[in-house]
Nucleic acid binder design. Structure first.
Lengths: 342, 342
DNA sequence: TAAACCTTTTAGATTTGTTTAATTGTTTGA
DNA sequence: TCAAACAATTAAACAAATCTAAAAGGTTTA
């Protein structure tokens, strides 16, 4: 490696000062056009690489934005991330990504690292149990935070997520309208606002339709395909003989359908299944999955924009913004067949 | 936000110099134990945040490692990334992630950004058509590169990937041993070394078994579920009436099986299908997918270690390291049924 | 008691780029 | 014609840490 090319290397080569070179490379109107062109040419010729760390020492804008979610391998988050990436790319921000796997410690660690690097802002889907102080740690040190997918109590920063109660109510009502009454709810947890909201949406829809809510029909669990697959055993052995399942998300639903198929029953005919999120693969599952679109792309796009706005001094987006989910009806749900024998 | 706490804030509060504070916080033996404890206490009390940019200006180690792959939403890369993350976490390196979607420009952009941030190193699955000069750009500026999943001509940096020819030969031989002779190859491209190797492995296995290789049985395409799903139509309409398919990866295979099921045939019985990668979901697909394990976790772990070694001055890992794939036989392949009617 | 020798602390230079105030030379307006 | 205005450039301060060489303070040795 030849020796490092810096501003002063260019300045010396041209008999100018570093101030002029610095200004020229940033297209300042203070520098004469001819001079600027000479400088830029020389910079390319020498293979100059701008040192952002040195620059940000004075400017206190690093161009770095942090994003933490539960797990980037989960397509739900992956779809949000893609939207965020698209939006941030446009504004020449680099983003640093991390999983927290619902570990509050790992998440705080990330926030601290980001502060050390001088991160301009952070977008996070907070880990279960995130204390308000962790969000304040970021905000108090001049790093605005945006929340996605989940809220944190006592925190009023811009928050974007789907309307969970409304969404599960949509799915539950759809099944009720097909004649189902013994409807299970599979996957997820009650330890998050999301979990409680989704359960409330499901339970209220049942009550409104005059159907009794039975806690035996609630089968909580991780939010993965594997978990849905394993839940099939419990589901099929359930003494209440449910005929339909509202699943926490598409992954659980697809896993459950695989499990049902493995047991020799036909998902979508013998058992109706709804997902949640409308991932890309919902449409190509067999049978194609009836699900609830949860606005991932909107969440990602809005969150990124809100952050960029904040960085430019606006704070209009503070508070909670709910995205209205929409029903996507496909072949995994069908009218209750009274003779099906289950 | 209160005013920024820096080394000098702590120094003044305790009547010491910044040099002492700096040394103390880094556990230098030059500082007396009592002094160090007082300093650390004060740092916590004031909520001091270490400024890595300022530090790295002198030390020229930023603690940042870049990772670029085709698409993090692809579970193949996601599994590699998880292994990298696990390994890097241990050494307190932050990693910056990006997709390049096989755009050489987007990839070079990332490398440049990383150089500007003073990245310590980069792990990349190079975009199709990556010129040697882009890898050299990184290396020449003191940022070592490690390649995963694909090679770049003329480049000798540590490279970790599966033995593709060997892997597809495994899958093809498995199908041949089940009695299949009309075996299609679905998905992927011939524009990468990986693509050519995989095709060669498939073609050579056929030749060795005395089966003619027919280019009509090669159906290239994107490496996604969607693409596999769509390929089912072409596959089933193929005039050579293939009875089995070697798929580019598990995603294509699962998509293809879904497409076959949608057409009313039973994948695994009427048509045998093999995948590639052995993703988590291969085991829970219906039918469970016969596939080739491609060592994602090994690739990720080795790559991360090789980079850390390089940063510590070793260069032992230069050159290509092939990981031997292994067959995972499940239910998506079965003996050729001569009466099946196709 | 001075010299030698620790241990601990610090002044001040250094890293690279940004920014402000000053400088130099030229043009304009009264 | 001369002061004011203007354009282009630069010296020097600055950002927050690290690092080296030297100083300060205390103890031991000859």
């Amino acid at each position: 490696m030849a020796q490092k090319i810096k501003l002063s290397t260019i300045a010396e080569a041209l008999g100018l000062s570093t101030a002029t070179v610095s200004l020229a490379l940033r297209d300042s109107p203070l520098v004469a056009d001819v001079t600027r062109d000479r400088i830029k040419e020389k910079a390319i010729e020498l293979g100059y690489i701008y040192n952002r760390r040195a620059a940000s020492l004075r400017t206190s804008r690093s161009g770095i934005i942090g994003v933490v979610v539960h797990d980037i391998m989960n397509p739900f988050y992956a779809e949000i991330l893609k939207a965020i990436e698209t939006e941030l790319d446009r504004s020449r921000q680099t983003f640093i990504l991390s999983n927290h796997y619902d570990s509050v410690d790992k998440q705080r660690n990330f926030i601290e690292t980001l502060l050390q690097l001088g991160g301009d802002g952070v977008i996070m889907s907070p880990a279960i149990g995130t204390p308000a102080s962790d969000i304040r740690l970021a905000e108090d040190n001049g790093m605005p935070a945006i929340l996605i997918a989940r809220s944190v109590p006592e925190i009023d920063v811009p928050t974007f997520r789907g309307d969970d109660a409304y969404g599960t109510a949509l799915a539950t009502n759809h099944l009720i309208s097909l004649g189902h009454t013994r409807i299970a709810m599979i996957g997820g947890t009650d330890h998050t606002s999301t979990g409680r909201d989704r359960y409330a949406g499901y339970a209220n829809a049942l009550k409104k339709a005059g159907i009794e809510v039975d806690s035996q029909l609630r089968i909580p669990g991780p939010r993965t395909k594997q978990s849905g697959f394993e839940a099939a055993v419990n589901f099929l052995a359930n003494p209440l003989k449910p005929t339909a399942a509202v699943c926490w998300n598409d992954l659980v639903a697809i896993g459950l359908m695989n499990g049902i198929a493995r047991a020799g029953l036909v998902p979508g005919k013998d058992i109706s299944v709804t997902g949640y999120d409308d991932l890309e693969e919902a449409a190509i599952a067999t049978p194609a999955l009836t699900t609830v679109w949860n606005g991932q792309s909107e969440v990602g796009r809005f969150a990124a924009r809100a952050l960029l706005d904040k960085l430019n001094g606006s704070s209009e987006a503070d508070g909670l913004h709910l995205i209205k989910p929409e029903m996507r009806i496909r072949q995994s749900t069908s009218p209750l067949n009274p003779g099906a024998g289950r």
